[in-house]
Amino acid sequence: MNIFRLAGDLSHLLAIILLLIKIWKTRSCAGISGKSQILFAVVYVSRYLDLVTTFISLYNTLMKLVFITSSFATLYLMYVKFKATYDHNHDSFRIEFLLLPCFVLALLINASFTPLEVLWTFSIYLEAVAILPQLFLVSKTGEAESITSHYLFALGSYRALYLLNWIYRYYAEGHYDLIAIFAGAIQTILYCDFFYLYITKVLKGKKLQLPA
């Protein structure tokens, strides 16, 4: 464990908590993409199957359980409890166009052709693009509530911090995983446009408005 990975995990946890607070406090999931939340749930389930086979540390097990339960709690809030506030019209990204290619790519490019490894690789590729429906929704509505933009900033920062973690681990431990690094780089790049808007607007107290 290193400071970059810890900061990344905490940023990830913060993002998940911010999202739950936003939905619970405003009793609405307006501006949030349910499609992205479905993809995140698929990412966690397909990545954390080793919960039952490998014990790495209490921290590792605990965080995995928190991520899985919170993602299903978010789905419940969005598709059941506050279903009436879900923005069906704008949340129209076809996630099958993400799920299928990621799965095919995981079958073709992976570290070893075993079910666990292929599913882990699938979750890595899927996580890289899982935010697209959310960014698509923000671009369609043209704006985002400030807490939603804080959620996105924390979520985008987590994988950016992981990139620093991978640089650190390469030099400190000689450990690296090209699949995770490439996917993590793409995932972070997808946020760049949002990061720019967040830093130039939201941090100045303005609302996140996308140029129409």
Binding site: I56, S112, W120, D177
Partner: peptide
Amino acid sequence: QEKLSGKDEL
């Protein structure tokens, strides 16, 4: 054993 491809990460 050596963790396969970063499995010790979240």
